[in-house]
Amino acid sequence: MWWKILLFLAMSALIVLSYVTPMPQKQIGEASRIFYYHIPQAWICVVAFAMSMVFSIRYLRSHNIGEDDKAVVAARLGFVFCLLATITGSIFARVTWGSFWNWDPRETSIFILLLIYGAYFALRGAVEIEEKRASLSAVYSIFAFVTVPFLIFVVPRIVPSLHPEDSIVDENLKFTMGPTVRTIFFSSLALFTGLYFWMFNLARRIQRVQRIRLEKEI
């Protein structure tokens, strides 16, 4: 219980601090503050989808339906954070590049991620038997995840990108942020991770209650 209160207080402090401290990047201006939210969201999205894939692999190995439940929860949360990252990124794009959407490689890859998991949920909706649904969607999520490295590493090389990469690390992989910005950024990363696991646990509890109710009805 105590860590949830702590998380709430820290998250509130983060929101305030992200607005009152100096701007992270002078050239971009006030809009650069969005990176305190955008990058943690994108990070959680990657963590959640990776977790979903790991649970899917574990389901295929054990055929234990609990693993499939975890995979769905992770995929749903990943989808929410992916949407948030897309929206914040799009706002940032509007301010700095002048349009909400211009098929920059980063925008393309996040769009495809949304499509992959949209298709994943569509597939789940189309299969009625629980075990069948679990294995088919596990296979699809692993198969689709295999293409993600192509999107992140290969496509941006073929098509040039405007996405700022030097806000975290420069070309020598050294941190480019000042101490204040770095502290806020990494706390934000940690807090978002905490928030994600909280949400994950909540969703898992709802799922377990639903399963118990289902068993009682039968």
């Binding site: 393309t108 495809i112 499509l115 992959i116 949209g118 298709a119 569509a122 597939l123 699809y140 198969f143 689709a144 293409t147 192509f150 999107l151 290969v154 496509v155 073929i158 098509v159």
Partner: peptide
Amino acid sequence: SVLSFPVLMPLLIS
């Protein structure tokens, strides 16, 4: 097509 398109997208781009 819904399931294939996201998987094929990197291929189609290149």
